[in-house]
Amino acid sequence: MSTFAAKRLQKEMAKIHQGLAPGIFFVNSPNLQHWQMDIQVLDSNPLYAGKTFRLNFRFSNNYPIEAPEVTFIRAPDREIPMHPHIYSNGIICLDLLSSGNGWSPVQSVESVCMSIQSMLTGNTKNERPEGDEAFVLREGRSVRDIRFVYDDPTV
């Protein structure tokens, strides 16, 4: 990992230990390039109330110039939230997470968590994206290779 990315991640880690926004928790990081975070939706949205979801972060050598790979993962007592932009394998269709689209190097792990948190908060549809089953079947692809078309300005 480049010293530049490592330095930046160390700084974020130090900030995380000072405190995080409500509903966001640091779980662990087996190494500096791989973090896990838990998020909760704070309002009483019936779709997510009382549930906690786990996010998996993978950082490239070029972080924060390049966006991290962020997906939901399953774990004991952690499922993949129902959302029209979240596939059942945990892949999130969010322009913010795509370098060259919505990603900005000013973002951080915490701000990404907050964005995903608010994406869940605003959702009322208890459904998966169109073509979810077919998408999930074509496994083995890196998230980075997926070219999403960000056509929904409502989320």
């Binding site: 110039i65 689209n101 990603w103 900005s104 190097p105 000013v106």
Partner: peptide, 17 residues
């Protein structure tokens, strides 16, 4: 160095886009 690298990826201001 940071802004130069960022502009290689996206031609917008990282703060206000």
């Amino acid at each position: 160095a940071c802004i130069t690298d960022a502009l290689k990826v996206s031609k917008s201001c990282p703060v206000d886009r």
